[in-house]
């Protein structure tokens, strides 16, 4: 099956039952996408599928055949990265790629989100270190 990941075309041969997260991490070595719970509860594995945020750990790779996938590796030049670093919006950093992908999805549709919109869009991305206040700040100030 075919996947377009960060603008590059890949032929993926996942066994039946392989998740998108496993395919990205193991077949394509794109380990920026993290798996923290593996059952869709924490948001660490968030990627964009056709520009929509998706939990890649509970998305079967065969369900996104032909889709356009954007992972954190495809967002390296996005100003949201700098915003997170500048605001100190990460501590251990394990949830951060997922946070940034969710944040990018939010600002792509709503460039100047309100606090309410940020909290609503980001409530599915857990951060055990509790970087939340600065994640909010990063998203509020992402345009520099």
């Amino acid at each position: 099956m075919q996947l377009t990941v960060n603008g590059h075309q890949y032929e993926v041969h996942g066994e039946v039952g392989t998740t998108l997260a496993e395919a990205l991490r193991e077949e394509l070595s794109l380990t920026g996408t993290k798996i923290a719970c593996g059952e869709g509860h924490c948001g660490a594995c968030t990627v964009l599928v056709d520009d929509e945020p998706v939990l890649s750990c509970i998305t079967l790779v065969h369900a996104v055949d032909g889709a356009r996938v954007t992972t954190i590796e495809g967002l390296r030049d996005h100003p949201m990265i700098d915003a997170f670093v500048r605001s100190d919006a990460l501590q251990c950093g394990f949830c951060t790629p997922g946070q940034i992908v969710s944040a990018v999805a939010l600002v792509e549709s709503e460039p100047a989100p309100t606090t309410e919109q940020i909290r609503h869009a980001m409530a599915g991305n857990l951060c055990r270190c509790g970087a939340y206040p600065k994640i909010e700040e990063a998203i509020r100030t992402w345009q520099g």
């Binding site: 380990t31 993290k34 500048r86």
Partner: peptide, 21 residues
């Protein structure tokens, strides 16, 4: 001071034990 390893962690380039293959 912003984290000296902030970018590595934010961009997913940082290799955690979980990422090691």
């Amino acid at each position: 001071a912003v984290r000296v390893d902030g970018r590595e962690r934010a961009t997913g380039q940082a290799v955690y034990t979980a990422d090691l293959a």
